[in-house]
């Protein structure tokens, strides 16, 4: 049977996207270290390979050879399952991501809902990891993660509703196309701020990294993990960062759109800019206290996102 390009195309995209994502995740480690070093007047890893890129390879080799130890007191099945969940959900979210015109895995008309749903499932990974480790630090980390994600999930969705209302679609490609005239960051600035903060909390990055607060909880929910399972959490976190950055670029900064350069390049540039902001936050902000985190979520962010939705709705209604 003759295999023509058009039938192979989705398959190639899937393989390409998966490959790029895993590569990006590991590259993120390097980027994060080098950027942190930059902002702390250091060099960061610069010994292995050009610009120290070989450190990533060295890390991968090292982590693959580490003893993959399951504590005897852990719930073995769940313990193994937990890191798989976070990898899967994070990767699957990219299925609806429009990287460029014509380059996306599926063109789903409920794309945003799909992403939100998967990120909700991702919570299970952390909660189950914390619970199945059967140690107090892990459990505390897992509990914190559940509460934190539950809280921030709510207005993360709400903050996007302004964008959805303006674009009139849940489809991410349609949202990108709707920003041809003006990036949504301008009318939806409040939505952008709320979404980005919620995104940082969703990936439990500094300053919202309470689930793995090393000074209090050892390493939080993944205290008991080692070897490649720990690696899965690690990579899952970086894919999460990439996902939030890509979503921010898509929803608020016109996705692939831009002059001169090819669309994919624009998409990559925008995504990496937001990744850098993640790192900048880590370099500059201290961790919140748990009660501050909850107060901030429920008392400030939620009303803000509701107000944003109200105003957006009102303006749209007024224009009609």
């Amino acid at each position: 049977m003759a295999i023509d390009f058009e039938t192979l195309r989705p398959l190639l995209i899937i393989v390409g996207v998966l490959g790029c994502l895993v590569l990006t995740a590991s590259l993120n480690i390097w980027i994060e270290r080098r950027l942190l070093a930059l902002w702390q007047d250091r060099y960061g890893p610069n010994r292995v390979g050009p610009f120290g890129l070989g450190h990533v390879v060295a890390d991968v080799i090292k982590i693959s050879f580490k003893e993959d130890w399951i504590p005897p007191f852990a719930d073995k099945a769940v313990f193994v399952l937990a890191p798989a969940i976070i990898m899967t959900t994070a990767l699957m979210s990219f299925a609806v991501m429009p990287f460029a015109p014509g380059i996306s895995v599926v063109d789903l008309n409920v794309g945003i809902l799909f992403v939100l749903a998967l990120s909700s499932i991702g919570v299970y990974s952390v909660a189950l990891a914390g619970w199945s480790s059967n140690s107090k630090y892990s459990l505390l980390g897992g509990l914190r993660a559940s509460a934190q994600m539950l809280a921030y999930e709510v207005f993360m969705g709400l903050s996007l509703m302004g964008v959805v209302a303006m674009a009139g679609s849940f489809n991410l490609r349609d949202i990108v196309l709707a920003q041809q005239g003006m990036w949504f960051v301008v009318p939806q600035f409040l939505g952008f701020v709320v979404f980005f903060i919620a995104g940082v909390a969703e990936t439990h990055r500094i300053p919202f990294d309470l689930p793995e607060a090393e000074s209090e909880l050892g390493a939080g929910f993944h205290s008991e993990y080692s070897g490649m399972k720990f690696g899965a959490f690690f990579v899952g976190e970086y894919i999460g960062i990439t996902l939030i950055s890509a979503l921010t670029a898509t929803l608020f900064f016109g996705g692939w759109q831009g002059p001169l350069l090819p669309p994919v390049v624009w998409f990559v540039i925008k995504t990496f800019s937001f990744i850098s902001i993640f790192v900048l936050l880590r370099a500059s902000l201290p961790r919140l206290r748990y009660d501050q985190l909850m107060t901030f979520g429920w008392k400030i962010m939620l009303p803000l996102s509701l107000a944003n939705l109200l105003v957006t709705g009102a303006v749209i209604l007024m224009r009609q």
Partner: peptide, 12 residues
């Protein structure tokens, strides 16, 4: 302020 350190001299 942290961002500005990107342009500072490195001490390493």
């Amino acid at each position: 302020l942290v961002f500005k350190h990107a342009f500072a001299k490195r001490v390493t």
